[in-house]
Design a protein around this nucleic acid. Structure first.
Lengths: 258, 258
DNA sequence: GGCGTCTATGCCGAATCATGCAAGTTTCAT
DNA sequence: ATGAAACTTGCATGATTCGGCATAGACGCC
């Protein structure tokens, strides 16, 4: 490899980001001997994949690797981050998003674009905090008694509050997913809330780790056909072969980690 | 040579603040080799995001949580913790508390007793997160659009929501306090919310750092006589001698740091 | 070989953003 | 009270970004 192939360059940049180093567009352009535009395109791509955050003059790693533990945490959360990154392109400028409870949605919250005028509503404390930390994104908190198990509001008050909204796109959180029975929830209150949420949302997105697929739950939320998009991991295709055919929805594939 | 992108600098500064370190504008200007104006702009931005408190000559962190005792005792932080600790004995078993926005209330939230059956309502994201982290304390989140400057909800929705509650004891957040004019707020929406809050609360507590004493604000909230307790620092007694006489309330004194 | 498609790249122009400087104001310290 | 340092605001300038467009190479297909 005397001459660096294009893909190798992007991977190289991505590796430095993963290691927690900030990169400068101008420097990379000199180092790889390409125009800054090419570098900027690389950085844009990496940012779209959720591997970095774009800033004026270069790019920053998502979580600065000041602590060596962060690399280990990354391994564990990699699947969720991959899922979230794969879902990012769904978001359209100016939309009002709803981010339901769930760790994958929390990952998504940390990588939302701040420059396309989106707004975010949520019933999860941690997600509200994460979006607030991004700055420049209006946040609507759905209040009510907080369920300590999930760190969010799912009671009657929250259900009433969410019915006041017109939501463009909802990212549904933790739920069971079965081809025959559609989406389900394990808790009664949670199910009621999610149903209300679905009712006021134009588009519904579910990001499902593979172990969530083909699980049943006591309470039914909505049929699979109500989904606008389903985001799954690579290996889900082989694990649940009927999935692609059964879901009358857009299917996004995130790379899965060993 | 690694030329750091401009915005990486702001993130770097923010990280130091998060770790509990105070920063000086002049030092940062030399270190990053930019004008002090640029640094000041960074600090202003960070302060607007609520990640630090702006002071003459630099900025101070406001998060006491990052590293418990190891970090240096910072003046502002310690005073707030002292105030909060002094207010703790007011809390009675089984009460429903309301913790309004404010850094002193955030400090209080981290030291609430978990074994006397209290519940907590709040309109501040950070406070809700802090109380949730304690575990074993029911939390009621007051929802609505989140004011990015304060990290909490103060609009009409929040006002309506708070009117549904019967609160035993409210810890009012940032407000002006004057013997003649009582409690005041700087923002109209905030004032409306706080008035509604006072209306549904049996007891009102204000924890005031000395610099808040004898300040005026545009919007009036309640007379001093409405207070059940006022918590001030030691040196407030000499700074505002009439205080003890004027307030027909319980006066708690917290030790003040040099 | 010829052709169309796709991707990666470089270049251009408009819009945006960060910066430094200057002028005026506030705050701190003596 | 007075001077110095720090702060804010407005403005001009250069850097950065993004979108569009054209070019060059890779690849498959006829």
């Amino acid at each position: 490899m005397m001459n660096t192939p294009p893909l190798a360059r992007r991977d190289d940049i991505g590796r430095r980001l993963d290691e927690g180093h900030a990169v400068s567009a101008a420097d990379l352009a000199i180092e790889f001997d390409v125009s800054e535009d090419a570098i900027r395109r690389d950085l844009r791509t990496l940012a779209a994949q959720g591997r970095c955050r774009r800033v004026y003059g270069g790019a920053l790693p998502l979580s600065p690797a000041s602590t060596p533990i962060s690399t280990r945490m990354r391994e564990g959360k990699d699947n969720k981050r991959n899922l979230a990154a794969a879902a990012l392109p769904l978001i359209q400028p100016g939309e009002l998003l709803f981010l339901d409870n769930g760790s994958t949605n929390l990952a998504l919250a940390t990588m939302l674009p701040t420059d396309i005028g989106i707004s975010v509503a949520t019933n999860a404390i941690a997600i509200a905090a994460a979006v607030l930390a991004l700055g420049d994104i209006p946040v609507i908190m759905i209040g009510g008694p907080v369920d300590p198990d999930v760190g969010g509001c799912v009671g009657a008050a929250a259900t009433l509050a969410v019915q006041q909204l017109n939501i463009d796109r909802t990212f549904l959180g933790t739920c069971a997913l079965s081809i025959d029975e559609g989406l389900g929830a394990f808790d009664s209150d949670d199910a009621i809330f999610k149903r209300a949420l679905v009712d006021v949302s134009r588009q519904i997105v579910v990001m499902a780790t593979t172990e969530k697929l083909e699980t049943r739950a006591r309470h039914r939320i909505a049929p699979l056909s109500r989904l606008s998009a389903l985001v799954v991991e690579q290996d889900a295709i082989s694990a649940v072969p009927h999935l692609a055919a059964a879901a009358a929805t857009q299917l996004l594939i995130a790379p899965s980690n060993p």
